[in-house]
Design a protein around this nucleic acid. Structure first.
Lengths: 142, 142
DNA sequence: GCTTGACCTGGAGCACACTCCAGGTTCTAC
DNA sequence: GTAGAACCTGGAGTGTGCTCCAGGTCAAGC
């Protein structure tokens, strides 16, 4: 029996774990960890048991990265992934989760803008102390 | 010898660790941890060795919280605190640190806005699936 | 002066999100 | 058909930022 075939027939193009790591910026280990944790469903394998990711896997991973970037915990992503796997009946629950997460994000972004303002104030304060001889871009006095 | 006096004279009003915890939202343990880690200089003590925070301590803590909120690591805050403790000669270094941190923050905020947009897209997608019968604010059908 | 809650220290423990490792299998190119 | 790179699994280890604990000392009200 030949091995290394991309599943039962080799229909659409698939990606190795190295290719997915490259495209997502995640490490091989993290990709396997996410799968083990149930964030992504078990990925298809070659007859030799090596992962072959499909376009849909990549799209889902990229959405997970949006959730991660906006501060969602692994535990919450697991919840979301479980709902998703359970099918259409959970759409309302998923929507509720996303709305809640989005609202928390809005709060954090407001806090972040306030803090960024404090930073700017402090930066201006230090610039004042240095007598305005400092410009961004060059560390050299004129 | 009387104890519990707020330092050698009791000049300006000072705060107990409980009061500072209340005002900053940090726990007692975190306040002690920050001091041990060198983020804040050793706080004044009563003759009985209990901490009494001054207004300047509180202001510095609040600035640290801005740094933390904007994602600065403890290690970087330690660096910044060390520069600050070293006096005026380090103002240029502190300014450089803040500018760099501010620039990274700008990058992260842009990424956050992009991700927030993806969330909004997904939310709209789910709303579409539910046939527009869902509105935020009330979980009840009309 | 005594009780009770607040506070002290050093150090261990914990949650999170990975990251690394050992020991083995598979794939690709020659 | 073989060398070397890529991949597999289960499980242990790591860095970060706290958080908890034991065993005491101190402070404030009665």
């Amino acid at each position: 029996m030949t091995s290394g075939q991309p599943l039962g027939g080799g229909r659409e193009p698939t990606l190795t774990i190295a290719e997915v790591a490259e495209r997502t910026g995640l490490s091989h280990d993290t990709l396997r960890y996410y799968e083990k944790a149930g964030l992504i469903a078990r990925v298809g394998r070659t007859t030799g048991n090596q992962r072959r990711y499909e376009a849909a896997d990549l799209a889902w991973l990229e959405f997970l990265l949006r959730l991660r970037e906006t501060g969602m915990s692994i535990a919450d992503m697991q919840r979301f992934a479980r709902l998703r796997a359970a099918g259409d009946a959970t759409v309302a629950d998923r929507l509720a989760m996303l709305r809640e997460h989005r609202a928390e994000l809005a709060v954090r972004m407001r806090a972040l803008r306030r803090s960024a303002g404090s930073l700017d104030d402090k930066i201006r304060h230090y610039e004042g102390l240095l007598g305005g001889s400092e410009r961004p871009g060059t560390g050299e006095p004129a």
